[in-house]
């Protein structure tokens, strides 16, 4: 199963968990499952519209496919100058 990694500020919405294994063939499916486990977490992950999947950061990754052993790091919106 892919692993969802939560940055410290997000852990308060997941009973303090930092790494959660959840089913999902896409990042979006993982978010749905995470929200089922921890109601409200999905909204926070959607507000955070970037994710690092296997080391590469993607903006709005809802439909990004994830491998069964993928590590997905949820990141709040990133910006630059």
């Amino acid at each position: 199963m892919p692993r969802a990694h939560l940055m410290t500020p997000l852990r308060r919405f997941a009973d303090g968990e930092s790494v959660i294994e959840v089913e999902g063939a896409t990042v979006g499916e993982m978010i749905v499952e995470l929200d089922r486990l921890f109601p409200g977490l999905g909204e926070m992950l959607t507000m955070g519209s970037s994710a690092a999947v296997d080391g590469l950061i993607h903006a709005e990754p809802e439909f990004l496919a994830v491998e069964p052993d993928a590590d997905v790091y949820f990141v709040a919106p990133l910006t630059g100058g």
Binding site: M7, T8, P9, L10, R12, F13, G40, M44, M47, G48, A76
Partner: peptide, 19 residues
């Protein structure tokens, strides 16, 4: 305060702990 889940007015924009 963003990502806080709170609807209370606040002077804090974000609070981001890392550990």
């Amino acid at each position: 305060t963003a990502f806080s889940g709170s609807d209370d007015p606040s002077n804090l924009a974000t609070v981001t702990p890392l550990e």
